[in-house]
Amino acid sequence: MTSTEMTVGDLIDLLSACDPNAPVRQAMNPFFPMAHRLAQVLQSVDETGRTVVYLAEGRGEDAQLGHLPPEVAVALTWQGPVQAPPRRTRRRVSGN
C-alpha cells in the first residue's frame, strides 16, 4: 500500500534543513489562512491500529497568531498571487 501521507521521517528530513532555533507554527484553514503556535506533539493509534503523530496547537489565547503571511499562503497554493491594480493617470482640474 502506497501512502501519500507525510511520515515522521519525512518531517524530520524537511525540518533538518531549517534553522533549529526557529519557532514552529502551523498553517491552518486554506479558505481563511491563519498561523497557530504548536504546543504539543502526541503519538497515538488510529482506528486501523496504525501509529499516528499529531501536532497540536496551544490552548491559550495567544495560540492563534493571526493571518498567515501572504507569501506562505501563495506557496501553499491556498491563494493566488495578488497584484496591485494598474495605476491610472490622475485627472487634472481644468485650468492647471
Rank of each mutant, 00 (worst) to 15 (best):
R88S: 07
L68M: 12
Q83K: 08
A63L: 00
N21W: 02
C18H: 08
V45H: 06
L42F: 06
E47P: 04
M28W: 09
G80D: 11
E61V: 11
P23Q: 03
V72C: 06
L14C: 14
T48L: 09
H67C: 07
L65Y: 07
A17P: 02
A22W: 01
T51C: 08
Q40N: 08
E61I: 10
P20F: 00
L38M: 13
A75M: 04
A56G: 05
V72A: 06
D46S: 04
A63N: 03
V52P: 14
E71H: 15
D62P: 09
A17W: 11
P85V: 01
T77E: 15
V41L: 13
L15G: 06
Y54K: 13
Q26I: 15
R25M: 07
V41C: 05
A63D: 05
Y54M: 13
P23Y: 00
H36R: 05
A39G: 08
P30V: 05
P70V: 11
P81C: 04
P86N: 03
Y54Q: 13
P85Y: 00
A27R: 01
L55A: 15
A17N: 10
A35W: 03
E61K: 13
Q83N: 12
S16I: 06
D62S: 14
L68F: 01
R91L: 12
N21G: 12
G58V: 01
Q43E: 13
Q40D: 13
L76G: 00
T48H: 11
V24R: 06
R50E: 06
W78C: 01
P69Q: 14
D62Y: 09
V24T: 11
E71L: 09
L68P: 02
F31D: 11
V74G: 01
F32A: 11
R87F: 09
A17K: 14
E71V: 10
P81L: 11
V41P: 01
W78T: 03
T48R: 13
R91T: 12
V82S: 10
L55Y: 13
L42W: 04
S94P: 15
H67I: 09
Q83T: 13
V74F: 03
A75K: 05
L15Y: 06
A73P: 00
W78N: 02
P86F: 02
F32G: 06
Q40C: 07
L65G: 08
Q26D: 05
R90N: 06
N21P: 00
A17V: 12
C18S: 12
A27P: 02
V45T: 15
P85N: 01
D62E: 14
R92S: 10
A73K: 07
A22E: 01
M28Q: 14
A27W: 02
F31A: 12
V93P: 00
V74A: 00
P81G: 08
G49I: 09
E47W: 04
P85C: 01
L42N: 10
V52K: 03
E61F: 09
R25C: 09
R87H: 07
G60R: 06
Q26R: 10
Q26T: 04
V53N: 07
V72P: 04
L65K: 10
R90I: 07
G58C: 00
P85G: 08
R59T: 11
N21D: 08
R50I: 06
P23W: 00
D19G: 03
Q26C: 11
F31I: 07
V74Q: 04
T51H: 07
R37C: 03
Q83M: 06
L14S: 11
R25Y: 12
P30L: 05
